[in-house]
């Protein structure tokens, strides 16, 4: 089961001309056996796929509407059957993450509210945005959710949304 996902955003590093390779490898080295890496980059980091494949990671790349790429690197699960378990609401309170960064307003709000509509009963939503989602709060309140936002080191915001 893929419970834990470690996020690593290297867009800022690349934009500033810094080589993110060592940072990525460092993060990978610190991953626990059941952890996956979610890498966000401004392009599809193909060279990295082979490197991480040697360490037993398989990539699932996804293009974001902003033109960036999101790649989930995970180790093959030992029990293939437990795969469906991740989607079942019976799983213990898990966190669904929505990355709404790099989108023009009001797309972040749309993306988050749509994810919220599909949120399993016992799950929490973790929404990542470039700005404090001021327009989102009244909408969440109306729908019976509570939210708390924290500013991240990179200036973005992480908002935890749960049912009241």
């Amino acid at each position: 089961m893929q419970d834990k996902v470690v996020r690593l955003d290297v867009r800022e590093d690349i934009r500033r001309g810094r080589e993110p390779f060592s940072k990525i490898m460092q993060t990978v080295a610190q991953l626990a056996q059941d952890e996956s890496l979610l890498l966000i980059a401004p392009f599809e980091p193909k060279p990295l796929f082979a490197v991480l494949a040697q360490q037993g990671f398989s990539p699932s790349p996804k293009a974001l509407p902003s033109g960036d790429w999101e790649v989930l690197f995970r180790r093959p699960t030992k029990t293939a059957t437990s795969h469906s378990g991740a989607d079942s609401p019976a799983a213990t309170a898990h966190i669904v993450e929505v990355d709404a960064r790099g989108l023009e307003p009001p797309q972040p709000m749309v993306k988050i509210l749509e994810a919220l509509a599909a949120l399993p009963e016992d799950a929490e939503l973790l929404a990542r945005t470039d700005r404090r989602p001021m327009h989102l709060y009244p909408q969440l309140e109306q729908r019976g959710f509570s939210a708390s936002s924290e500013e991240q080191a990179d200036g973005s915001f992480a908002t935890h949304i749960r049912r009241c």
Partner: peptide, 21 residues
């Protein structure tokens, strides 16, 4: 457009299909 969109469709986002801005 945003003000009108938010006022008319804010509550419907994720529940119904709403027009894009």
């Amino acid at each position: 457009p945003f003000l009108v969109w938010f006022g008319s469709y804010g509550q419907e986002i994720g529940r119904s299909q709403v027009p894009a801005l």
